[in-house]
Simulated scan of single mutants.
Amino acid sequence: MTARPARLADLAEIALGLPEVQEGTTWGRPAYVVRKKAFVHFREPRPDAVDPDTGERMDDVICFSVGDQNDKDALVASESPWFTTPHFDGYNAVLLRERDLGRLTRRELEEVVTDAWAARAPKRLVEAYFDEA
Rank of each mutant, 00 (worst) to 15 (best):
M1P: 06
T2C: 00
T2S: 13
A6V: 02
A6R: 01
A9G: 12
A9L: 10
L11I: 07
I14H: 02
L16C: 11
L16A: 06
G17M: 07
P19G: 00
P19D: 00
E20S: 11
E20L: 09
Q22E: 15
G24V: 05
T26N: 10
W27T: 07
R29M: 15
R29C: 12
R29D: 05
P30K: 03
P30D: 09
Y32G: 02
Y32Q: 06
V33T: 09
V34I: 09
A38V: 08
H41M: 12
H41F: 15
H41G: 05
R43K: 12
R43M: 15
R46S: 13
P47Y: 04
V50N: 04
P52H: 10
D53A: 15
D53T: 13
T54G: 06
G55S: 12
M58I: 13
M58Q: 13
V66F: 06
N70G: 10
D71Y: 07
D73S: 15
L75E: 08
W82G: 01
T84Y: 05
T84A: 09
T85Q: 11
T85V: 15
P86D: 12
F88T: 11
Y91N: 08
N92D: 14
N92A: 11
L95R: 02
L95E: 07
E98K: 14
L101C: 07
L101Q: 02
L101N: 02
R103D: 14
T105M: 09
R106C: 08
R107K: 14
E108P: 03
E111T: 13
E111V: 14
E111S: 13
V113C: 01
T114Y: 07
D115K: 14
A116M: 05
W117T: 04
W117M: 02
A119P: 06
P122M: 01
R124D: 06
L125E: 00
V126F: 04
A128H: 05
A128W: 01
A128Q: 13
F130S: 10
F130V: 10
D131C: 00
E132Y: 07
